[in-house]
């Protein structure tokens, strides 16, 4: 029944990483993603890999669950590897297979492995954030991080409210979708057979009622918000406040060490890319 919290990927547990401030986790993820792109040799990846392993251990999420997040991107990784293995056109020392303009060389193999690693690191790192942070925490974190944009009159509060309402309505609308599907099936609707186009066309009798009912819901919600004195961000207070803890400091320090290490290794060894 916990689908409302666990859509996306959230894995419920009590851990070091779970109780970190969502803002810190977001910032660390951004820094992490940049670092993954900065790395230019396998030693750097080894260090980042160590950081990932550490993060997974301290998040108490089973390794298998984390790896499962790769499923969606597996196709992309394989595709990238194949392209790079056969069509990489950099300098090379040895040629393994040559067939017209298609060559498999030592550097193309290395480059393909490098890209595969980079992609996996990106996905694994992001999934640690989504596995250990509820969507609600994430929106709170994003709102708080965007707060400085208020200076240039960016509607931060409104954006955050839109995000949180969207999250709130995901389970409601998914229930509704199921109800509509059942209602259409009961009248002989067929959503399983036929080709891609036929099946896409079959979605229309689901989408239109869903759209109409969303508008009706939106109107009712608007009335309910009006009735509860909503009048924009002006004069509004906030009940929840995010608090930084010692864990966040530890997170920053550990990541700073990794970053320093990566920069050092980048200089110390030959860049592969």
């Amino acid at each position: 029944m916990a689908k409302s919290l666990s859509f996306g990927q959230y894995y419920q547990a009590k851990s070091f990483v779970h109780s970190m401030d969502p803002r810190v986790k977001l910032l660390l993820l951004i820094a992490y993603l940049v670092t993954v792109f900065v790395v230019s040799n396998f030693f750097g990846f080894a260090l980042i890999g160590a950081f990932l392993v550490l993060a997974i251990i301290f998040s108490r999420v089973p390794v298998f669950t984390v790896l499962k997040s790769m499923k969606g991107i597996l196709f992309l990784i394989i595709f990238t590897v194949i392209l790079n293995v056969f069509f990489y056109s950099g300098e090379y020392d040895r040629v393994f297979i040559e067939w017209g303009s298609v060559r498999v060389t030592d550097s193309s193999l290395i480059f393909a492995a490098f890209m595969a690693l980079r992609l996996s690191m990106l996905v694994l790192g992001s999934s640690i954030l989504t596995l250990t942070t509820t969507p609600v925490e994430l929106t709170d974190g994003i709102e708080s991080l965007l707060y400085p944009l208020k200076l240039i009159k960016f509607p931060v509060h409104e954006l955050a409210l839109i995000m949180s309402i969207a999250l709130r309505f995901i389970p409601t609308l998914s229930d509704e979708t199921q109800r509509i599907i059942n209602a259409q099936k009961a009248r002989g609707g067929d959503f399983e057979s036929g080709g891609l186009i036929a099946r896409a066309k079959a979605m229309i009798p689901i989408l239109i009622p869903l759209l109409v009912s969303s508008f009706r819901r939106a109107e009712e919600l608007g009335d309910a918000m009006d009735a509860r004195c909503y009048s924009g961000s002006k004069g509004r207070t906030r009940y929840k406040r995010l608090k930084l803890g010692y864990r966040d400091g530890v997170g920053f320090v550990v990541f700073a060490i990794v970053l320093a290490g990566v920069i050092y290794l980048n200089g110390a060894f030959v860049a592969l890319v």
Binding site: V136, L221, R228, C229, Y230, R238
Partner: peptide, 19 residues
């Protein structure tokens, strides 16, 4: 279902007084 703004009960109750 159409009058709750936040996912978590406590946050939703806070919506009015915040406003």
């Amino acid at each position: 279902d159409n009058q709750m703004v936040a996912t978590i009960v406590e946050d939703d109750i806070a919506f009015g007084p915040e406003n």
